[in-house]
């Protein structure tokens, strides 16, 4: 019981510290803006630890964070192998192909107002669908290895990216287009010098949504058949074998990879669209 009390006390103390920080005169400082959520996260972990230990929850149901951390450290080879299989081979290759194809498609249909008008509502609708359901079909088409996972990812990321690029290419003001006309600029000059740069905030919106979808697709596809490695494989078999701590370690990897993947794309976005009002510093 003391563990529970200690955990709750720690949580309250951490919240109190956050309140103090949020009211302090350093609240605008970068360090504080980072520290507050980190403290909050640590407090949640401590609460989890305290509750699991204090209430003596079986590790088969919910292991304590420290147990998960221990498993994480001792099974890095397995985790690395799964990471390579699922993230690098499945998700990343599918992401690059899917985003690339969507981008090229968007530019290819751009010249036809008719095609754009037809594809945009369909793309918007399909982007909202549970496309992940096609995973078993693609696994049966492309086999158990990473190619089928990449295929699932390609289909999943295609529509959100397509829709965002098409939308982005529409984002120029009439005045900016008139300006290009007064220079007698060609279609491709207008595309490269005006429309593509103006589309970038939208393009990156699509690319960011696609990062999460790529991981979801690669992991779910493994539930429908995979070689004996991969994060989805490990999670689905781990639940059956009651290797719950390993499952949580995989979840931790998935969470870290997901955040890092998103973060990297967001960083590139910052570099490319530094000029956009949402990105300007100050």
């Amino acid at each position: 019981m003391t563990a529970v009390v200690a955990a709750v006390a720690f949580w309250l103390a951490a919240w109190g510290l956050n309140v103090a920080l949020a009211r302090s005169r350093w609240r605008k400082a970068r360090a504080v803006r980072i520290a507050v959520p980190v403290i909050f996260g640590l407090a949640v972990l401590a609460l989890w630890q305290g509750l699991v230990r204090g209430l003596e929850v079986s590790p088969v149901i919910l292991p304590a964070p420290t147990d998960i951390a221990r498993t994480f450290v001792t099974s890095t080879d397995v985790l690395w192998q799964d990471f390579v299989q699922t993230v690098l081979k499945g998700a990343l290759s599918g992401y690059l192909i899917g985003c690339g194809v969507a981008f090229v498609t968007a530019i290819a249909i751009d010249r036809s107002a008719f095609l754009t008008a037809g594809l945009l509502p369909i793309g918007n609708f399909v982007a909202a669908l549970p496309i992940v359901g096609i995973a078993p079909i693609l696994v049966s088409w492309f086999g158990f290895d990473w190619q089928s996972k990449a295929a699932v990812v390609v289909v999943m990321v295609f529509f959100p990216v397509l829709v965002n690029v098409v939308q982005g290419l529409k984002e120029t003001e009439a005045m900016q287009r008139d300006l290009m006309r007064t220079y007698a600029a060609s279609y491709w000059q207008t595309m490269v010098k005006l429309r593509l740069p103006a589309a970038m905030p939208f393009v990156f919106n699509g690319l960011k949504i696609a990062t999460t979808l790529a991981l979801i697709g690669a992991i779910v596809a493994e539930y429908f058949g995979s070689p004996i490695r991969g994060m989805g494989f490990r999670i689905s078999t781990g639940v059956g074998r009651l290797a719950i701590d390993l499952v949580w370690a995989e979840i931790a990897v998935a969470a870290l990879v997901g955040t890092a993947f998103y973060g990297i794309v967001a960083m590139i976005e910052k570099l490319v669209t530094f000029w956009h009002p949402s990105q300007r510093v100050g």
Binding site: E173, M175, Q176, M200, F274, W275, H276
Partner: peptide, 14 residues
């Protein structure tokens, strides 16, 4: 043959 100046500056922010 001409340069055109619009009501808004319309400079490209990038």
């Amino acid at each position: 043959a001409y340069g055109y100046v619009f009501q808004a500056a319309g400079l490209y922010p990038w």
